[in-house]
Design a protein around this nucleic acid. Structure first.
Lengths: 174, 174
DNA sequence: CTTGCTGGTTGCACAATACAACTCCGCTAC
DNA sequence: GTAGCGGAGTTGTATTGTGCAACCAGCAAG
């Protein structure tokens, strides 16, 4: 799957090639998707914003993360995460516990309620996705999923813990 | 989390099958992407927010759209579009002209400045995407692009003009 | 002309976010 | 030890995108 070869920038680097158009399309479609994701997510579950949902989902996968981890993972400011986490805690969906090894650190855990809500939301979100993907051949689904994973896994894209994240030239104003 | 999988497989596949996992992955990855798109876009081009960029891009493709069209297309509230359009106009990137056939309607056009800026932003955004997609075989790029298009083209998803948008049925009075 | 619909704008509220200043804590150097 | 540095979180402040509701302005029927 790696397809590490194809070093030929020629494939993706030159204007006018089908591949170039593809990049353009990917760019546009992904952006369009992003534009809507938030809106629809909000409509579906007023209870859980897209952010909250995402954070919660992340916690479900890896219990015991620190706020900083989440911030790094999503390229969010710590303050944002802090507030989101506070909200989540206030809502009783997660718990913050001080790491015995390092008093500065707060380890985050999903509560039962959190797990429950997350389950519901995931279920209905998944249903929507499934509906949307109905009719797709399994083969395509698998490939699509793989592409997305590959895309998101780009180094610098998801600096999971201790990551440089110079992807975007650091602090911007690029 | 594919634990309690309700096997309504008729849709995309059979519970617990690779296809189902794929849907799950698509769901997760797409969401993760959405979470970041905005942030990175903002960092890259303070000049043009993701929304503005998107709207502008849309106008480039189809000159002479109405604000309502954009709203429907992106599932945004008309007020939001109205404000964005105003901003864009204030910035001299687009022009609003009254439709001679219907005085209520404002037809939107890109100005030269708008086209120019859009070109720049598109170029650098494309560069980023291209960098990220470098090394992908052309075949994969094309397929990926096609998948995304197919995904976004879902009937309820992009109600171009006259949109029922009952996709997400519930009007979560937020 | 009155009613009703559609496109658009404005007032208001709110959520998400960034940035900066600050507190706490742990670690290292003196 | 104490001082100072750096990392984790929190809080203050401002900005932006957003939706909803109320509103105004044309068009189309009756």
């Amino acid at each position: 799957m790696a397809a590490a070869e194809t070093p030929d920038e020629t494939t993706v680097g030159l204007g006018g090639h089908p591949a170039d158009a593809a990049v353009e399309t990917i760019h546009r479609e992904l952006t369009a998707f992003a534009r809507r994701a938030r809106a629809s997510a909000g409509r579906m579950h007023p209870e859980l914003s897209l952010v909250s949902y995402t954070l919660l989902g992340h916690l479900e996968e890896r219990d015991g993360l620190r706020a900083t981890d989440l911030a790094a993972h999503y390229a969010l400011d710590k303050s944002t995460v802090s507030r989101q986490v506070s909200a989540l805690e206030r809502a009783g969906l997660i718990e913050r516990r001080v790491d015995p090894d390092d008093q500065r650190v707060q380890v985050l855990h999903l509560t039962e309620a959190g797990r429950h809500i997350l389950g519901q939301v995931t279920e209905s979100r998944r249903a929507a996705f499934r509906e949307r993907l109905a009719g797709w051949p399994a083969q395509d689904l698998i490939r699509f999923a793989a592409y997305l994973e590959r895309y998101n896994a780009w180094p610098g894209g998801e600096p999971d813990r201790a990551a440089p994240r110079d992807t975007y030239g650091g602090r911007g104003t690029h």
